[in-house]
């Protein structure tokens, strides 16, 4: 085999893969958690909180992620806030992914019949208890396909981390390609890496969906 692959490209991409994974996993987890919180506050929160989180969603869905990352990494130091490249990227991904996920969760929450909340209240549950034990578990199941979709997106937009100098898969591939001028090979292989990551995520998401499946909720 061409030593370009075995000695240069693959070791670099494997290094990038580790970094990508370290970006994706916390971003996906906290992005989902954030989405649930933001979505719930946007539907059931007090009016001022609803407005606040609506504004948050409008901003983070409305501004290109690349611009958000630039602001986080290059802009904030102007007001004395410094982030490592990795931290800036993860924060950016979590904020963006939360905004998108909140919309899936919001839709699912609105689809839950008001009788569920009434029945919970009639048993003496507080609003918070009803949300935590009755409403959110149902909404989460309904939102899961959408949130899964957002995670798949996240895997791919994690490639933007390299523009704030956090060198992950795409960053490594770019460096190797620029060095060797073998763009086609480098990016074809990196494409396979992403495809693999997405396939694994799809498989895991399907497993989770199956695990959470309940008669009357999604998969039979």
């Amino acid at each position: 085999m061409d030593p370009f692959y075995t000695n240069e490209l693959i070791p670099a991409l494997n290094r990038g893969l580790v970094m990508s994974t370290m970006l994706i996993i916390p971003s996906a987890f906290f992005g989902l958690l954030g989405g649930i919180l933001v979505g719930t506050f946007r539907v059931f929160g007090p009016k001022p909180i609803q407005r606040l989180f609506n504004a948050y969603t409008a901003i983070f869905r409305g501004v290109p992620l690349m611009v958000q990352l630039f602001i986080l990494y290059y802009g904030l130091p102007n007001i004395g806030i410094y982030f490592e490249a990795y931290t800036a990227a993860v924060i950016g991904f979590i904020l963006c992914s939360s905004a998108y996920n909140s919309e899936y969760i919001r839709g699912a929450l609105l689809a839950i019949k008001s009788g569920q909340l009434q029945a919970a209240s009639a048993l003496g549950m507080s609003k918070t208890q009803a949300l935590v034990w009755i409403i959110i578990p149902q909404a989460f199941r309904r939102a899961l396909p959408g949130c899964g979709n957002e995670m798949i997106y996240l895997i791919k937009y994690s490639s933007l981390a390299y523009i704030v100098s956090c060198i992950e898969l795409t960053g490594e591939a770019r460096a190797i390609a620029a060095q060797s001028f073998r763009f086609t090979e480098a990016f074809t292989v990196v494409a396979c890496y992403y495809l693999l990551l997405v396939s694994i995520a799809t498989y895991l998401l399907k497993k989770v969906e199956k695990r959470l499946a309940i008669p009357g909720f999604g998969t039979k």
Partner: peptide
């Protein structure tokens, strides 16, 4: 309730 409102999950 008229329409039961059992917790579906």
């Amino acid at each position: 309730f008229q329409d039961f409102n059992l917790f579906d999950h």
